[in-house]
Amino acid sequence: MTVVNYWLLGVHDHDDIISIGLWGLIKIGELFSMTLKVLLVDDSITARMLGGVAVKQAVPDSEIAQAANGDEAIEIAKSQAFDLFLIDVNMPGMNGLELCPHLQAISPDSIFIVVTANIQPAIQAEVAALGVGVIGKPINPDKLKDYLDSCRA
């Protein structure tokens, strides 16, 4: 915020060269602060790998961590902050729908998206009741980007 104010002063009170230089500073600052931190939770290594590729395509400026099950996801979420959680439903132990409330309690301001091959109306209703998003497997980068854009709007 300080940088933005300074840039605004620059526009009004200084010459164009200084303004452009400060604009560049703001852009870098914005990009840095917008690095999307993502936790991918899926018991399949393949799904995590393909999910990671899709996230990078949707949001090139992202950092991706992985968890292979619900317990691991909770541990990681307690130790690091994430902007986005992508959670598989069908996992051994705690399933994705059971895991969501635990992660929501740890990180209430994050975006949660359940990722499942099983997009039936009944499952969608259950996901909606949790107040989280849902996208089909495999993750389509365009759909993920659209969903994230809708969350930011």
């Binding site: 399949s44 393949t46 799904a47 393909l50 091959a117 099983n118 997009i119 497997k137 495999p138």
Partner: peptide
């Protein structure tokens, strides 16, 4: 396993 999951889930869906 993952390919099977998405194909079979699509059919059952």
């Amino acid at each position: 396993r993952e390919v099977g999951n998405v194909i079979l889930s699509a059919c059952l869906g």
